[in-house]
């Protein structure tokens, strides 16, 4: 399976990665090689094997529902590039509301 340039651009957009001109071809080749490897793995007969989502089978590790102290607000905000009145500040998100 070979990825097209458009597909590479789409994947890059989803991952919020900026691509330089010409890089589409470079990554198209690399990603296609990875997919080709997956195709090779598909040749293995796995009919008799249960699907596995995880290799570490520790089983249901759950936590008791007990509240613990949170971080102080100033600690929570400490790495933020911009804050205001206890909020993180980000560039405006526009919804197309009338």
């Amino acid at each position: 399976m070979t990825l097209t340039r458009d597909e590479v651009r789409h994947v890059a957009m989803l991952a919020r990665l900026g691509l330089e001109p010409g890089e589409e071809d470079f990554y198209a080749e690399q990603l296609s090689a990875i997919l080709a490897h997956i195709d090779r793995l598909r040749e293995v007969d796995t009919d008799a094997i249960e699907p596995t989502a995880q290799v570490v089978q520790v089983g249901s590790r759950l936590r008791e529902d007990l509240p613990e102290p949170s971080l102080p607000q100033e600690r929570a905000l400490t790495n933020a590039p911009e804050t205001k009145d206890g909020f993180f500040v980000v560039k405006a998100i526009q919804e197309s509301e009338p």
Binding site: K84, F87, F88, V90, K91, A92, I93
Partner: peptide, 19 residues
Amino acid sequence: RLLHAGDALETASESLVDL
């Protein structure tokens, strides 16, 4: 939760985030 700063949504240049 996301709060939109400023009164008018169109003119708001930033959003506030409360986690």
